[in-house]
């Protein structure tokens, strides 16, 4: 666990207190602060990655951090492909990590 939230007490810019929110990530409850992005909440909880790629299933998390690379996409309340680094977390959000397998054989003909 190396990514983390800077403790407000140590922070030279002195963020004011904000409300605690809680979201569900693949069924697990994760708490964060109002105003954090989903990526911010996940990274602050020590998660370095959440998506798995379609090709070799390798893990991905935040890469560009500004909404350009789409590596960090998650499903939010049923909506797929939401950039976690862009969407603010809302209390009660249901987050599911994405692992979209490529189409395979054995489909109805």
């Amino acid at each position: 666990m190396s990514s983390r939230l800077i403790a407000a007490s140590d922070d030279p810019i002195r963020p004011k207190d904000s409300a605690v929110i809680s979201i569900s990530v693949d069924g697990e409850t994760v708490t964060g602060l109002a105003g954090q992005t989903i990526a911010g909440v996940l990274l602050a909880s020590g998660r370095p990655s959440w998506r798995r790629t379609s090709g070799d299933g390798s893990p991905r998390g935040v890469f560009c951090g500004i909404g350009v690379c789409f590596d960090c996409i998650v499903t939010v309340n049923g909506d797929r492909d939401v950039r976690a680094c862009q969407r603010r977390a809302a209390d009660g959000d249901q987050i599911r990590s994405q692992h979209d397998a490529l189409p395979n054989a054995g489909v109805p003909r």
Binding site: D100, N104, V107
Partner: peptide
């Protein structure tokens, strides 16, 4: 579309 789970055959 973006990639999605296989639902159209």
């Amino acid at each position: 579309t973006t990639r999605m789970p296989h639902r159209i055959f």
